[in-house]
Design a binder for these strands. Structure first.
Length: 249
DNA sequence: CACCAGGCCGTGC
DNA sequence: GCACGGCATGGT
């Protein structure tokens, strides 16, 4: 069964906040406040968002077979699922994520929503659509603190302003990859994050600085290129492993 | 002061 | 194809 806390704190999303032992976040144009032990099988939107139809127990067992080192992490982070987030939000979020830390990524995304999204209630804003961002200049983004990523945001917005995301989603994984890599500011790692978190291509295995260290250290014997559909979840657990160990070993 | 953060681009070879 | 420096900003 899903563990909402382990999932929402796993670094795949940046807009859920822990408040009073609950999680507050926005999906589409709706604010959700979720108890940590909420049974979400009754809500269609949440059921899909949290990918509740997938058998993660089976995948966990398979991952432990291939990588026994991850056993404790998998037990600790039981119920960590791969979310089905809005692709556009993931594209922009992971462009912002590069050479950046989670705290500041969160801050910048909040600022993006506040400046260009639609107000829902009080201090809650939707994630800005392509349309809402299409006239924002590089200089505007720089003023908000996006730094060298400002140029990348503009280039992604220019690419997607004439693209229907429904149609784009229907393209093959390879085609999406080619299109995404053609955008200035999207390289292999960000592309893999987009394909995994935004389009649920679970054979993707994003390799960031933490993963690089892990794969050349503790996990150097892992055959990570042959994990197939287990790759995305395995990567998530290794990422958690490195966080648990605070970057050590 | 240095180095790092869920990297990528441009250049040079 | 691969290696390298530069890049905005804030934290340690």
């Amino acid at each position: 069964m899903i563990n909402i806390e382990n999932t929402l704190l796993s670094g795949q999303c940046f807009r859920w906040k822990e408040i009073d032992n609950k999680f507050k976040g926005i999906i589409g144009n709706k604010v959700y406040i979720l108890e940590k032990n909420l049974d979400i099988k009754d809500d269609k939107v949440l059921f899909n968002y949290f990918d509740c139809q997938t058998d993660y127990n089976f995948m966990n067992k398979e991952i432990i077979k291939r990588c026994p080192l991850l056993k404790d992490t998998i037990l600790n982070k039981k119920g960590l699922y791969i979310l089905r987030q809005d692709p556009w939000e993931v594209i922009i979020s992971f462009i912002i994520s590069q050479n950046n830390n989670i705290k500041r990524i969160t801050k910048l995304i909040d600022s993006l929503c506040k400046n260009y999204g639609t107000k829902i209630i009080d201090d809650d804003f939707s994630f800005p659509s392509v349309k809402q961002l299409e006239n924002v200049s590089e200089e505007d983004f720089r003023k908000l603190g996006f730094g060298f990523r400002a140029r990348y945001l503009v280039s992604a917005i220019n690419f997607f302003k004439d693209v229907d995301m429904e149609n784009f989603s229907k393209k093959s994984e390879k085609e999406k990859e080619q299109d995404l890599l053609s955008i200035c500011g999207i390289g292999n790692k960000v592309c893999d994050c987009i394909l995994l978190y935004g389009f649920h291509h679970t054979s993707r295995f994003p390799i960031d600085t933490h993963m690089k260290k892990a794969l050349s250290g503790k996990f150097k014997d892992l055959d990570y290129k042959n994990l197939n559909e287990l790759a995305g979840l395995t990567q998530q657990y290794i990422f958690e492993y490195t966080r648990e160990n605070n970057g050590k070993d």
